[in-house]
Design a protein around this nucleic acid. Structure first.
Lengths: 174, 174
DNA sequence: ACCTGAACACCGTTCAAGT
DNA sequence: ACCTGAACACCGTTCAAGT
């Protein structure tokens, strides 16, 4: 007689992400995830190959949420602010994305709005490179902000707006 | 009778960094470092508090090497290229720096050349924010490049030069 | 078919005993 | 004073046995 499912892959991924944000990467143990979904650790292996695969699934979920948040953006400023809000609310998810392993389809979906807006500014020929300029800047700024790497004083909100303004100007045709 | 030292903190940090680059973060075990320096794992704890402290020391060593490489830079392009060369040669060290934990003194030394060159371009009032713009862009570009996050084709060397050219123009007074 | 206890391998860390 | 073997705790993972 088959037993009814006591959890699901989606629930496991959501639980893993919650544990990650609450306890950090080292605190994301199979045991902690199992407790959160109400099964024993070995049961997780029915739905996930191993811990690394679970981390990769959380990374995909994180990229998907970024894509969802960026979708309505109409300007570079919209993109930058939505991306920064995500990084502040889910810092561990943001860092996990940067560790690699997110799948190409999700990445493409997340980068679509930036490509569209960048293309409107600089034209199709430079759209990809302009999008990479903006994305790299925002990603680096947030990575450094979360890592506490900006230690020379100054207001970080202002520094973010400064970068955004300079990049927008640099990509706006005269 | 005291036994003669069979290793040193410097040797341990160098060995840990070498293991990190060769085997990745998960392969950086106390046992692997111990084998590399020719002692047993418990002996490492005479010189290092724990594995996290060892990782922090490797991060400091990595930031110090970045500082050393950036020191002779005279232009933003020099900085960008030296930083990228470091990231390509020691990708794990680069990623470790981004994880935080590098100490303020090393960070300040590494950021001095960028501050100086940015200040020459935009003046002292905007030097810090301009330096953060360039540093954030380069850090983000390299993070994404190493993570394999640029999957929409295009030449990455060209994308890097495009960003560098746009940023240099944006920070060069008319 | 999913779930579990038991077991195993591996790793970080401590410590008493050596020199 | 540094070094080591032995031991312990913790975690990822497997698997046979339950339902």
């Amino acid at each position: 007689m088959p037993t009814p499912d006591r959890t699901s892959l989606e629930e496991i991924v959501a639980a893993a992400w919650a544990v990650l944000e609450a306890e950090g990467l080292a605190g994301l143990t199979m045991q902690a995830v199992a407790v959160k979904v109400g099964v024993r650790a070995p049961s997780l292996y029915k739905r996930v190959r191993d811990r690394d695969a679970l981390l990769a699934l959380v990374a995909v979920a994180a990229v998907d949420e970024v894509a969802r948040r960026l979708e309505p953006a109409a300007t570079l400023a919209d993109i930058a602010h939505a991306y920064r809000a995500f990084a502040h609310e889910r810092p561990q998810g943001f860092r996990l994305i940067q560790s690699g392993g997110a799948d190409p389809a999700s990445l493409a979906r997340a980068s679509e709005p930036v490509l569209r807006i960048a293309g409107d500014l600089v034209g199709p020929g430079d759209a990809l490179e302009a999008a990479r300029l903006v994305t790299a800047w925002a990603t680096g700024f947030l990575t450094m902000e979360l890592a506490g790497a900006f230690r020379l004083g100054g207001d970080l909100d202002e520094a973010f707006e400064y970068g955004l303004a300079r990049l927008t100007a640099a990509l706006t045709p005269a």
